[in-house]
Amino acid sequence: MPEHLSALDLVLTGDPALFAIVRLSIAVSFSAVLLAAVLGVPLGAAIALSSFPGRDAAIVMLNAMMGLPPVVIGLVVYLALSHSGPLGAWGLLFTPQAMVIAQTILVTPIIAALARQTIEDLWLEYRDELTAMEVGPMRRIATLVWDARFSLITALLAGFGRAAAEVGAVIIVGGNIDGFTRTMTTAIALETSKGDLPLAIGLGLVLIAIVVAVNALAWALRRAAERLAG
């Protein structure tokens, strides 16, 4: 049987091993994006609305951190979580939690940088009105984040794309342990090196399908919400 057909079989028959890997991958990447959003959106908003010495340098650094190499993040998190590291007592190395930590560090700068740009652009538009209405700083941030919510979804999608596709960080801190920390990307790398191409191709198809489905859902939500809110 051609390899792409047996790969399709694995997907269509709901192969348990394959779907365990898919479930873990989704859980890790969604958790990381959620945490990164909680950290990154307020950080981006704070930078967008404040002025402080070195602000331009902070923005350049934040933008530069969008391109952090995943293997370097993996290495840093590995060193921090290893037994002799400062967080070694947590015992998180080679667990899904360690993978979430690494991906959160990877994704937070992306969400923060895109949120900063989005919120700053909207602030330029709203500044006169909100100032005239004497809106205080906290309500100002809440207003801008809420009104920029459709654009911020794009930032979250960019973060999700980065998290779902990366392999370098999770393979270092997760260890690619079968049935425990094996994700789609690490499994694809492993199975390809072992020559098990059907599983690698099957996982690849599922990964692409998930990324497309998440983006399609977000796009549909955004269109529907824009029609309602303007």
């Binding site: 538009e125 709203y126 006169d128 009105e129 005239a132 209405m133 207003t143 009104d147 809110a229 303007g230």
Partner: peptide, 18 residues
């Protein structure tokens, strides 16, 4: 303002906001 900026919400919500 000469070119007022409407918040991205309904007409009624714009008034409630202020």
């Amino acid at each position: 303002f000469q070119r007022p900026t409407m918040l991205r919400r309904s007409a009624a919500a714009n008034i409630r906001y202020a």
